[in-house]
Deep mutational scan, measured.
Amino acid sequence: EEWMVEKALMVRTGLGARQIESYRQGAWIEGVHFKRVSPSGESTLRGTTWYNYPEINKFIR
């Protein structure tokens, strides 16, 4: 699984929702560690946020 939603990321990493938000707003790079995608497939600020687990795992190492 490369891309996953927040709940799956929480299960895989043990991070809480606030921790994920903090990383997203600070250290993680949009387009690398996470992306927002609307149902139409376009990038957007209001779409579902998807997280790239392999890239996040590399960051944590």
Score class of each variant (00 low, 15 high):
1 E>N: 11
1 E>A: 09
1 E>R: 06
1 E>T: 08
1 E>C: 10
2 E>P: 06
2 E>N: 09
3 W>V: 00
3 W>H: 01
4 M>I: 15
4 M>W: 03
4 M>N: 01
5 V>M: 15
5 V>D: 15
6 E>Q: 08
6 E>H: 06
6 E>G: 06
8 A>G: 06
8 A>I: 10
8 A>L: 12
8 A>K: 07
9 L>G: 00
10 M>F: 04
10 M>G: 04
10 M>W: 04
11 V>L: 14
12 R>W: 09
12 R>A: 14
12 R>P: 02
13 T>L: 07
13 T>R: 00
13 T>N: 02
14 G>W: 03
14 G>L: 04
14 G>I: 02
15 L>Y: 04
17 A>P: 11
17 A>F: 08
17 A>Y: 08
18 R>L: 12
18 R>I: 11
18 R>G: 14
18 R>T: 11
19 Q>E: 14
19 Q>R: 05
19 Q>D: 11
19 Q>L: 07
20 I>D: 01
21 E>K: 11
21 E>N: 07
22 S>K: 13
23 Y>A: 04
23 Y>T: 01
23 Y>P: 00
23 Y>K: 02
24 R>M: 15
24 R>S: 07
24 R>N: 03
24 R>F: 05
25 Q>G: 08
25 Q>D: 11
25 Q>Y: 08
25 Q>A: 10
26 G>Y: 13
26 G>A: 08
27 A>E: 10
27 A>M: 08
27 A>F: 10
27 A>H: 09
28 W>R: 00
28 W>A: 00
28 W>I: 00
28 W>D: 00
29 I>A: 06
29 I>E: 07
29 I>T: 10
29 I>P: 00
30 E>C: 04
30 E>R: 04
30 E>F: 05
30 E>P: 05
30 E>S: 05
31 G>E: 05
31 G>R: 03
31 G>Q: 04
31 G>I: 03
32 V>E: 03
32 V>H: 05
32 V>I: 13
33 H>S: 00
34 F>G: 00
34 F>S: 01
35 K>R: 09
35 K>G: 03
36 R>P: 05
36 R>S: 14
36 R>E: 13
37 V>L: 09
37 V>A: 09
37 V>N: 07
37 V>K: 06
37 V>I: 12
38 S>A: 11
38 S>V: 14
38 S>H: 12
39 P>K: 06
40 S>E: 14
40 S>D: 14
41 G>C: 08
41 G>T: 09
41 G>F: 08
41 G>P: 10
42 E>I: 07
42 E>A: 09
43 S>V: 11
43 S>I: 09
43 S>L: 10
43 S>F: 06
45 L>I: 11
45 L>V: 12
45 L>Q: 13
45 L>W: 07
48 T>Y: 07
48 T>A: 09
51 Y>C: 00
51 Y>I: 01
52 N>H: 06
53 Y>T: 02
54 P>S: 10
55 E>Q: 07
55 E>D: 03
55 E>Y: 03
56 I>V: 08
56 I>Q: 00
57 N>F: 13
58 K>F: 07
58 K>T: 07
58 K>L: 08
58 K>P: 02
61 R>M: 15
61 R>I: 14
61 R>C: 11
61 R>E: 14
61 R>Y: 10
